[in-house]
């Protein structure tokens, strides 16, 4: 059984993050708890020649330092007692009993197991994914390894917006510069899970089809001008951006939609009447919608529509679309 010792803080190397798995930690709660009840659980340290390396308890050491304490209670391990992987596992175990890992922290831990401690992928899938409540599947491991490689801004966005694993995989297909150009734009839009997925898919597909980098698509002046329109609300801006990307991705469909809209506009439909093509112009049968509040309005609509039915351009619309 290890004894607990008081170790001077200045002998602890807080820059060594070999065993650290922390991203955007919420230190507020820990701070107030340490202030009121003090340190209940000692930190775990590994003794080195000249100083101590933190195995577990990074957050406690940070806050303790912030609170200007001189020393901290610690359980100290000799350098030879365990190998680094064992120390890391000890740290994971200790952390898992006291807190939950966020997505990025899970990614960091898996990346360390994979890269730093050279644990075999199959072993990680079988043993460690379930430890983090993840399904033991290669695809999941790859998703988290890709997340671990992403830039701080992207990781922050992913955590803040609770981005799904599917969308993380889409981010993972982009280059670093692409992601860094994209994140500030996304932050100005109003995107739920499926909108984000649509937008990322559109960008990736345009980029693959045209052999153009995503950052270059995003820097196009026509897109930039939508983004700089101050009068747009976030949902309006989101709609415009989405429409813009859709047109870029589907030029022939957009052309057809435009032509249809133009044709319909030439009929000068009164307010409350609208004509819609079949979905994706597939099959025949347009949809006509109208609104009325009084019998007079109803008669006016019917009258307008019956005149419209006699017009050659209207017949052409039915014929051609």
């Amino acid at each position: 059984m290890k004894t607990i010792q008081e170790i001077p803080l200045k002998q602890i190397d807080i820059t060594d993050e070999t065993f650290s798995v922390n991203f955007m930690p919420d230190l507020q709660r820990l701070r107030s708890s340490l202030q009121t009840v003090g340190l209940i659980q000692p930190v775990l340290l590994k003794r080195r020649e000249r100083d101590y390396q933190i195995v577990s308890g990074f957050r406690r050491v940070w806050v303790w330092q912030e609170l200007e304490r001189d020393s901290i209670s610690a359980m100290v391990f000799g350098g030879q007692e365990k190998n680094d992987l064992e120390f890391f596992l000890l740290s994971l175990e200790e952390n898992l009993t006291t807190r939950r890992f966020n997505m990025v922290e899970k990614a960091m831990a898996l990346q360390k197991l994979h890269r730093l401690f050279q644990v075999d992928s199959l072993e990680i899938i079988k043993t460690y994914l379930p430890l983090f409540s993840l399904e033991p599947h290669e695809k999941i491991l790859n998703t988290f390894l890709a997340l671990a490689e992403m830039e701080e801004e992207v990781k922050t966005y992913i955590l803040r917006e609770e981005v799904s694993r599917f969308n993380i995989r889409l981010f993972g297909k982009m280059g670093s510069e692409d992601r860094l150009t994209l994140i500030p734009i996304l932050s100005h839009l109003k995107l739920g899970e499926s909108r984000l997925r649509e937008m990322l898919t559109l960008l990736l597909e345009i980029s693959q089809r045209d052999g153009q980098r995503i950052k270059d698509i995003l820097r196009r002046s026509d897109l930039q001008s939508i983004l700089s329109q101050k009068e747009l609300t976030p949902p309006q801006r989101t709609e415009r951006v989405k429409k813009f990307l859709f047109c870029l991705r589907n030029p022939r469909m957009s052309e057809k939609e435009e032509a249809f809209k133009k044709k319909v506009a030439s009929f000068h439909l009164p307010e409350g009447i609208s004509i819609h093509p079949p979905p994706f112009f597939e099959g025949r049968g347009m949809k006509l919608a109208f609104q009325f509040r009084t019998t007079e309005e109803y008669r006016a609509v019917v009258d307008f529509l019956s005149k419209l039915g006699g017009k050659e351009e209207f017949k052409a619309l039915i014929q051609n679309f």
Binding site: F280, E282, G283
Partner: peptide, 12 residues
């Protein structure tokens, strides 16, 4: 694969 890069839409 580039097969999904065409203009593809759901049908009836």
């Amino acid at each position: 694969t580039r097969i999904f890069l065409g203009e593809l839409f759901p049908g009836k």
